[in-house]
Nucleic acid binder design. Sequence first.
DNA 1: CGGCATCCTGCTAGATACTG
DNA 2: CAGTATCTAGCAGGATGCCG
Lengths: 133, 133
Amino acid sequence: MSVAHTRVTPQAGGPCGDDDCGIREVLDRIGDKWTVLVLVELAKGVRRFRELHRAIPGISQRMLTLTTRRLCRDGLVERTAYPTIPPQVEYELTAMGRSLAESVQRLAGWSREHKDAMREARARWDADHPGEA
Amino acid sequence: MSVAHTRVTPQAGGPCGDDDCGIREVLDRIGDKWTVLVLVELAKGVRRFRELHRAIPGISQRMLTLTTRRLCRDGLVERTAYPTIPPQVEYELTAMGRSLAESVQRLAGWSREHKDAMREARARWDADHPGEA
DNA sequence: CGGCATCCTGCTAGATACTG
DNA sequence: CAGTATCTAGCAGGATGCCG
């Protein structure tokens, strides 16, 4: 994801000008390591910070904070903080966020359908190309 | 996108075990900086190396080579080399590759539909949060 | 033309420690 | 509990030069 994405600066009307620029735009948002996982978890319902943290094994507090913040900034997630003690913060998908989560899950569907075929293709390729790391 | 993705090691049956693992799998393949652009360009038809290079502004030879190779390895692209002089290599989507390109373009559609809404959301957020980089 | 090898850099994200 | 701050490493990706 973001993948160090130093914007591709697609000049309008250029070769890739019309149909792929949109793609890079989404990928700059969901292409990173954690965003989709948060998205999918929130698609199941409202979640507190801690709950997200536990639901997504391996994510650090820092990355969860950064990821949720970016999602909020883009209007995909709504953050509600209750000034209780101890503090309590709830995250919830917005309508747009739910819509994105759906699209993303459709892509996940593709992945599940073709996972085996890809695994086989890779095995075949690796067999034919012995000199690979 | 590969995004330095050090595999999330999702234990089966875990909290995110069922519906997101598939997502990471695709994103590990299309989440990087160039894959989707190549995919989309090839969706338009057979392309030679040079043609791809010109069609995707900003990509380096190295990254184009790496990207096409990964796509070949995964069975999404077929590579045909003609041993002419000078050499000539053609790239073409496989059936699976076309199917993925379609899914990806649907996601791009989402992006185009919501681009403005996200831009506005971001503007609003930035206005409300002055202390940001 | 198409591709590989090498070096170098900047960003992403992990680890750790500290606050309200 | 829900963050923030800092420091660091590792890798993606850019630039350049050579080969068949």
